[in-house]
Design a protein around this nucleic acid. Sequence first.
DNA 1: CGACCATTTGATATGGATCAAGCGATGTGG
DNA 2: CCACATCGCTTGATCCATATCAAATGGTCG
Lengths: 226, 226
Amino acid sequence: MLPTASCPSHQTTSPRAPQPLPPAHSLSGPFEMVGAAMNFGRNMEIYGESEPADYVYKVVSGAVRAYRTLHDGRRQIAAFYLPGDTFGLEVDSTHVCSAEAITDSIILVVKRRAIVSQANRDPKIAQQMWTLAGQELQRFQSHMLLLVKNAQERIATFLLEMADRIATSDEVHLPMSRQDIADYLGLTMETISRTLTQLENEEAIALPTSRHVVLRNRTALNSLNA
Amino acid sequence: MLPTASCPSHQTTSPRAPQPLPPAHSLSGPFEMVGAAMNFGRNMEIYGESEPADYVYKVVSGAVRAYRTLHDGRRQIAAFYLPGDTFGLEVDSTHVCSAEAITDSIILVVKRRAIVSQANRDPKIAQQMWTLAGQELQRFQSHMLLLVKNAQERIATFLLEMADRIATSDEVHLPMSRQDIADYLGLTMETISRTLTQLENEEAIALPTSRHVVLRNRTALNSLNA
DNA sequence: CGACCATTTGATATGGATCAAGCGATGTGG
DNA sequence: CCACATCGCTTGATCCATATCAAATGGTCG
C-alpha cells in the first residue's frame, strides 16, 4: 500500500480510521517538526514492515510499539515509543519494523524528505538525526543485553526503564498490556504476571492496579538490573 | 587508558602487543580509509566499553567480536566483524561495546575526526556513514529477533548468516569458538555443540572438523530460519 | 610424549512455557 | 438496574527445552 498525496501509509486493521488533525509543530525535541498531527486509534497500524519509509513520526500523546514477527506469529517488540519520542526514521528507505498505536495516540507526521533536505541546509539538524540514530542503536544494544537475563532481571530492567521515561516520581502508569510486555522482554504473559506478583511480595513494587506500578524499593530493583 | 599520539587505545590483556604495520588503504568498501594497519593478536582487546570512540576500524583479515558483559560475567556478543567490515563508528563519542580480536587480525585504524571532516566536505562519505549506521541497526534488529527463537532456529540462522558473509560456496570456516557462538546466540556452549551434531545427524550440515561446517541442505536450514 | 585447551557427550536439574481454570473489571442489552 | 458476555489478568498444575555439572575425547603445541 503506497501513500497517497499528503497522507502516510497505514492500514486500517482497526475500527476507526486515523483522523487528520490541524497541522501542528513540536514545541521541543530533536526536530523542529512541522507536520500533520494525526489520531491513531488503539491497535491501529501506523506503518508496516518493509513498507517505504517516507515519513517520520513523533509521539505527541499515547504510546506506540514497533515490532517484527516470525512467520509462525511469534512477535518481538523492538521498542516502545512514548510522548516526545521520534520513530520511523530509517536509514534505508524501507521500514524494518511495523508500528502500531498501543492506545489512542496523537502522532505528528512529517515527510522524511523534508527533514533530509532541511538537514542538508542545516548541519544542526543533521547532528540531531545522528543523535536519534545513536539513541536507537544504544537502545537496541541494551535490549539485546536484556534478552540474556532471567525473568526477574528483565522485568526489573523494564520497570526501571519505564520509570525513567514516564515516571511521575515512582508511579508508573503502563500503557501496554502484559502481552506487549511479554513480547518486548521475550517471555510469556504468564511469566510477566507471576514475576510482578513475586516482586510485589518481596515489596520491591506495589500494584494498586495491574497497569499502575509503584516502585517501592529501587535499590532492590537496581540490584536485579545486573 | 587514553590513546597516545598516533595509536588507538587498547589494553594488552594478551601476550603480544598490537604491531603497527606500514600505512595502508582499503581497496574497496564504505570509506576510502587511509590509516594505520595494525596487528592484533588472538583475544587482544581493540577497545573497551565506555572508552572514548576516537577511532574507526576496518577488518582487513581475521575476525572481531563486539560484546557487553553483565557484572556477574555473563557476556552478550552483539556482533562479529569479518574482513571488509567496518566497526567502532559510534554516534556518541563513547564505545558502547568492547571489541576483541578473535584470531590474529590485521585491522585498519582511522581517526574518527578524519572521517567526520571528510564527510563534511564530501556528501558521498556522509551517505556511506549513514549506510553503515543503517546496517548496524538492521543487524541488531535481526539479532533481537533471533534471540526469541529456539536453539535449532538460532543456530540455523547463525550458520546461514555466516555462510552469507564468509562462504566459499557452502563451506564455512568459523573463526570463533563454541563459547563465542554461545554468547552470540544467548545459549550455552553445550547446547551449541549438541545442536550442531543434531543438525549433522539430520544431514542438514556436515562437520569435517569442529570449525569447518558444510551446508548440506540449505532448504532444511532455511525452514528453521523462521 | 604429555600438557593443555576446545569440543563432545552424558546425567540430572530447573526456569519458564504451556495448558487450563478462575477472577475482577468493564460494558451491553434486556 | 441487574444478568451476562467479554477482556485482561492472575493463579495453578504439569511439561519440556535448555542449563548445569561432570566426565570423556580429540586435537595442538612445546
